[in-house]
Design a protein around this nucleic acid. Sequence first.
DNA 1: ACTACAACTTACCATTAGTAAGTTTATAAT
DNA 2: ATTATAAACTTACTAATGGTAAGTTGTAGT
Lengths: 110, 110
Amino acid sequence: MDQPHNCVTPNICNNFHDTIEFIGKRWTGIIIYTLMSGPKRFHEIVESIPGISDRLLTERLNELVKEGLVTKKQLDSSTKKVEYELTPSGMALKDVLIAIRNWVEQRPNL
Amino acid sequence: MDQPHNCVTPNICNNFHDTIEFIGKRWTGIIIYTLMSGPKRFHEIVESIPGISDRLLTERLNELVKEGLVTKKQLDSSTKKVEYELTPSGMALKDVLIAIRNWVEQRPNL
DNA sequence: ACTACAACTTACCATTAGTAAGTTTATAAT
DNA sequence: ATTATAAACTTACTAATGGTAAGTTGTAGT
């Protein structure tokens, strides 16, 4: 808990402020959470996240790829099948997700 | 990393999905981060978070109070001076913030 | 009495999200 | 061989949220 926040690299989260806003962007956290259990195809992600739409999932996945947290693989060339997988950097967010889950579990259920 | 997400109590984050969306809401994370160092007055928060506006800070603080993560104290009755402070529940988010900071520090600076 | 400050509140415009329908290419069914 | 279905987007449009600026209320200082 030290340094404040002054953004340098646009769209790349190299500091606390940018990072928390990036992974906290609507759906992003749950997408990462979903991919923690292994690579998934587009429709598998849609199906495991109730409420998300095609449009926003596409947008968020593109952002995640751009930030280097997710990779996109073409399965079976010449078809439209793709697979999304966390990079090591994305996987390293597991500790953050675990910390959140622990906090949720320890909260008094008002 | 177990259970999925099905919201029961509206506006109260008792599960992973709601929680990550709540603390990831624009400015919320940084407000909590700012209050980690102790109680602060309204204008002190504004001054320590570059870019935030009165309107959004008011809105976010109200949400945080509603969720039981922050308390609002009237200082010096009959003036407008107030102070915001994390509740124990809010303070418990420190582990989450530390996990994020660690992740940021360990990332390769593209 | 005049000015400034603290903590909002209101009004308005810009950006982002949600919903639904359409597109493209490929395999499956009849 | 034609038709249908599916995967992964894309486009268009409306609703919700965020950003900017100005206004409000009450106290304090000079």
